[in-house]
Simulated scan of single mutants.
Amino acid sequence: MKKRKVPLRKDIVTGEMHPKKDLVRVVKNKQDEVSVDATGKKPGRGAYIALDVKVAKRAQKEKTFDKAFGIKVGADFYDELVAYVDHQQARKELFGNDA
């Protein structure tokens, strides 16, 4: 069987390349609304962050998405992002890579 190529994306906080499934996509749409893209298919400008709570908290502290998207992102979004990453990280530990 032929080996499939694993798509890689860059984590905008650490600058490291990771497999796409180990990252979460954050998207900014045309109305300048920033949201977590769980499906990875929302339209708009996307940026990726690792599924690691420490990385999410670092993004919150450094206001990474403010810089990446060139707009002011609310603190509530960063709180939502940390909660989402924490939840996904817990799911991955519980269920392995199938989650």
Rank of each mutant, 00 (worst) to 15 (best):
D52F: 00
F65I: 06
L23Y: 00
K57G: 03
T64A: 12
K42Y: 09
K21F: 11
A83C: 01
K72T: 15
H87M: 14
K61T: 11
H18Q: 11
A75F: 04
K21R: 13
V27T: 13
G96S: 09
E62V: 05
Y84N: 08
A50W: 01
K10E: 15
F69R: 09
D98F: 04
G46P: 03
K72Q: 14
V36H: 03
K5Y: 11
T14V: 07
K10L: 12
V13W: 06
I49D: 03
H87V: 04
N97C: 02
I12S: 01
K63F: 05
V73F: 00
T64R: 08
S35P: 00
H87K: 14
G15E: 04
D52R: 07
K10R: 14
A50C: 04
D98Y: 09
E62S: 09
K72P: 07
D52Q: 10
D86R: 13
K42E: 13
A47R: 13
D52N: 14
P43C: 00
K41P: 03
D22C: 06
V6D: 10
I71S: 08
D98I: 14
A59N: 06
Y78N: 11
K72N: 12
D22Y: 06
N29K: 05
K72Y: 11
T39N: 09
I12T: 03
D86T: 14
L23Q: 05
F65P: 07
Q88S: 06
K63R: 15
V6A: 08
V27Y: 03
E62K: 10
V27E: 02
E16I: 01
L23A: 04
E80G: 04
P19H: 08
V36F: 01
D79R: 11
D76R: 02
H18Y: 15
L51Y: 00
F77V: 04
K57H: 09
V53N: 04
V85G: 07
K92V: 06
R58Q: 15
V53D: 06
L8W: 05
G44N: 06
G74R: 09
E62G: 02
L81T: 04
K3S: 13
D66E: 10
D11S: 08
R45K: 12
V55S: 00
L81W: 01
V24N: 03
V26T: 03
P19Y: 06
D32S: 10
K5A: 15
V34W: 01
F77Y: 06
P19T: 08
L81R: 00
I12W: 01
F65A: 09
D98R: 12
A75Y: 06
F69C: 08
V34G: 02
K72C: 08
F65H: 03
G46S: 10
A59R: 00
Q89V: 06
K41W: 02
K5G: 10
A68S: 12
K42A: 15
F69Y: 13
A68L: 07
G46N: 07
I49Q: 05
A47G: 12
A47F: 08
Y84F: 14
G40M: 03
L81E: 05
V85N: 00
V36I: 15
T14R: 08
K61C: 01
K21I: 12
A75E: 15
D76E: 14
K42F: 07
K41C: 01
A68F: 13
H87D: 12
K41I: 09
